[in-house]
């Protein structure tokens, strides 16, 4: 219960960066922190107390495995997060070349 709430606080830190900061790189960092929080929440949700990792072993019988389904879903989410981060950084660099700043309040010439 407290673990879930700490994870929610981590999400809020990222959301604060997205809402409040003016630097585009800081906003990208906020998005990255939000992705961390969501992946961690999925894994926390599938954790079984005193469980084992979902790998079979040739020597022994393993019965109490943790939930493997959120892990599989979070794995795709991690890879997609890298792709979106690369795309966002590319757009930010293009904006820097065009306007000479990362400050979003100075970018006021979005008129084509």
């Amino acid at each position: 219960m407290s673990t879930y709430f700490l994870c929610l606080i981590l999400f809020c830190v990222g959301l604060y960066a997205i809402l409040r900061k003016r630097n585009i790189i800081k906003m990208i960092i906020g998005i990255v922190i939000c992705e961390y929080a969501i992946n961690l929440f999925l894994i926390l949700f599938g954790y079984k107390m005193n469980g084992r990792s979902p790998l079979y072993s040739p020597d022994q019988q393993i019965l109490d495995m943790v939930d493997p389904l959120p892990q599989a879903m979070a794995m795709t989410a991690i890879v997609i997060s890298l792709a979106t981060t690369a795309l966002l950084v590319g757009i930010a660099i293009r904006i820097y070349e065009k306007y000479g700043t990362f400050d979003i309040t100075k970018i006021n010439k979005l008129k084509g």
Partner: peptide, 13 residues
């Protein structure tokens, strides 16, 4: 992306 794009041409004023 970062190696080709990042020439950092001086920004136009």
């Amino acid at each position: 992306l970062v190696l080709v794009l990042l020439k950092f041409t001086p920004p136009k004023k």
